[in-house]
Design a protein around this nucleic acid. Structure first.
Lengths: 139, 139
DNA sequence: TTGCTCCTCACGTCACGTGAGGTGGC
DNA sequence: TTGCTCCTCACGTCACGTGAGGTGGC
């Protein structure tokens, strides 16, 4: 696709339903993430509808990327805050220290996930092969 | 000291702690699986200690293989029962029909898991690369 | 006005975690 | 007797799902 790199002041906003579809999360989940502070309070229309920016969508994608690794929402919050600090140049040495800790943890979790995929694949093949034993020679 | 209840080759039995370690599940999880019927009631010592056979361990491994695919414990129960029916030659055409349904579902879930692994990998790399930006001076 | 999308409670659910208090067996 | 491992409640937790009842805006 030809990029339409959103220019600095071009502020496209989305309703929660659009975001849910784009990111692949339920409305409830997105609201829950706001409740527990994983994502910040978003803007609202006069009527109270939540409004999301492209940045919010990005953040939700990151949350969705971390979740299958078994990180709790609390940990995810922490990591995203650390990344924000680096991005906004307000990071201390402690920030990087903590990020490195999380990086190591992430590698560990990713490996575990990989292992689980292997197990899942093995099991999928097993079910498929047993299911196929359904005597193809029966009339 | 090496006198554990399992020394004979034919019917080795294990205590729940051994099983937990071998399979990689918590004691609570294993008991929970028994509570909800994913695994059958096991044998017991006179004192009430649960005893597991190699077959039980196998079954627990299968449960562990299916769980990351997002199957509920109820679905897992069903699949394992269907597999048992095939193995004991008490399977009906309906059995195979249902197994094929689950096989298709498993493929779907496995693909989703694969996708998640990709996302997780992406995110792991992101954290790692940001964490490495901790250059002492960036002027 | 209709239809669709959103809103806020608030209880329910799933899969366990986490003590508390007690017992088994070498 | 000591130490370790196991036992049964039973409440707690995490991450949402699922209505119920109501409103916004084209």
């Amino acid at each position: 696709m030809a990029d339409d790199p959103a220019t600095a002041d071009d502020q496209a906003v989305y309703q929660i339903g659009d975001v849910a579809e784009r990111v692949g999360l339920s409305l409830r989940t997105i609201r829950h993430y706001e409740d527990v502070g994983v994502i910040a309070q978003t803007g609202r229309t006069r009527g109270g509808y939540r409004l999301y920016t492209e940045r919010d969508v990005d953040r939700l994608r990151k949350v969705k990327g971390m979740k299958p690794m078994g990180f709790t929402l609390g940990e995810i919050s922490d990591v995203l805050e650390l990344l924000d600090q680096v991005e906004s140049s307000t990071a201390s040495p402690r920030t990087f220290e903590r990020l490195q800790m999380f990086a190591a943890l992430a590698v560990e979790r990713r490996d575990k996930l990989r292992e689980r995929l292997a197990l899942a694949t093995e099991f999928t093949d097993l079910i498929a092969s047993v299911a196929r034993r359904s005597s193809p020679d029966e009339r």
